[in-house]
């Protein structure tokens, strides 16, 4: 019997029954996990292996034969001005969105948290962009920012600043898209911060008030900010990852333009892989993309593991 081989771990129970129970548990467990395992294999693990393999070749979609080029694709990427620019643009985008979306999210959460009757009203408004289809809203932003027809420029003209070509001025295109990124993320971060805020005991604020923390700044510095530390770290990481994956707004609003001024990493991967069909090269770029994401994830795991439980 197979059961006898497995039994020793279950010593102490009546042998036969314990064996059968353990065997049943094993079979059921494997059965339950099997579909997930199979999908994991097909959807994630095999593609990852193929991806690594492709990145070392010169394969192009449809090509009949291909050969290994070692790290050639990676070397090419490093010296490719288009890719380097897209990497730099992505970092720039993250460095605008991160402080904006985290800082404003925190500010809004702190202000909203102290409201009682109007809290759900503000919550609803700020959360609206999270649920709305970004592509559709990006199209609307395009209308809003239109140099001649958009209301924003009409307003700027009226107060005497004159037209600003938000999306076609190379120095403004990326910051403009970043502002839209902030617009979309503030509500999401607000909700996370609100969850963190409601976990802070009210007693502490009262104790602080008696101890002399009279104004909002003191209360924030003494209680809110330190106790919100773990939440803040988490929000910073998730915002970084989301911002790093920016794609939709670029694809709809600028297509990387003008003159590559808003070309970002994922858009470059998309163009190489699915428009130009430089499959192997795109595989290498994807791996570089993955490395960045993994760095963020490692930091996240690290932070969450040693998340301070006071």
């Amino acid at each position: 019997m197979a059961a006898t081989a497995i039994s020793s771990a279950e010593a102490g129970l009546p042998q036969g029954r314990a064996n059968r129970q353990a065997l049943v548990e094993k079979l059921v467990g494997m059965g339950f996990a099997f579909p997930a395992f199979l999908l994991l294999l097909v959807i994630i693990i095999t593609p990852l292996i193929v991806l690594f393999y492709l990145s070392l070749t010169d394969y192009e979609l449809g090509a009949l034969d291909f050969r290994s080029v070692g790290l050639g694709n990676f070397q090419k990427a490093m010296s490719d001005p288009v890719f380097r620019r897209s990497l730099w643009n992505t970092v720039l985008y993250v460095s605008i969105v991160l402080p904006g979306a985290v800082g404003l999210g925190l500010l809004v959460a702190v202000l909203v948290h102290s409201r009682k009757r109007t809290r759900s009203f503000y919550e609803m408004i700020y959360f609206l962009p999270v649920t709305s289809t970004l592509i559709a809203m990006a199209t609307v932003w395009q209308v809003l920012l239109h140099p001649r027809l958009g209301p924003i420029n009409a307003f700027l003209r009226q107060i005497g600043i004159g037209e600003v070509a938000f999306l076609s001025d190379p120095s403004l295109a990326l910051p403009t898209i970043a502002v839209i990124g902030i617009w979309q993320l503030v509500g999401f971060n607000m909700v996370l911060f609100l969850a963190g805020l409601s976990a802070i005991p009210k007693d502490l604020y009262e104790a602080a008030e008696i101890d002399g923390c009279a104004n909002g700044i003191d209360r924030f510095l003494t209680i809110t900010w330190p106790l919100l530390g773990p939440t803040t770290m988490f929000v910073i990481i998730t915002t970084s990852i989301t911002a790093f994956k920016v794609f939709d707004t670029v694809a709809v609003m600028t297509r990387g333009g003008p003159a590559g001024a808003s070309e970002v990493l994922l858009y470059a991967v998309y163009l190489e892989g699915f428009q130009y069909f430089h499959t192997a090269y795109a595989a290498a770029l994807t791996i570089i993309f993955l490395v960045f994401i993994l760095i963020f994830s490692v930091i996240q795991t690290f932070v969450i593991d040693r998340r301070v439980h006071y």
């Binding site: 994630i44 593609p47 990852l48 994922l266 994807t286 993309f289 994401i293």
Partner: peptide, 9 residues
Amino acid sequence: VPVQVPALP
């Protein structure tokens, strides 16, 4: 691993 990574294969 975001979906953009296994997308190509």
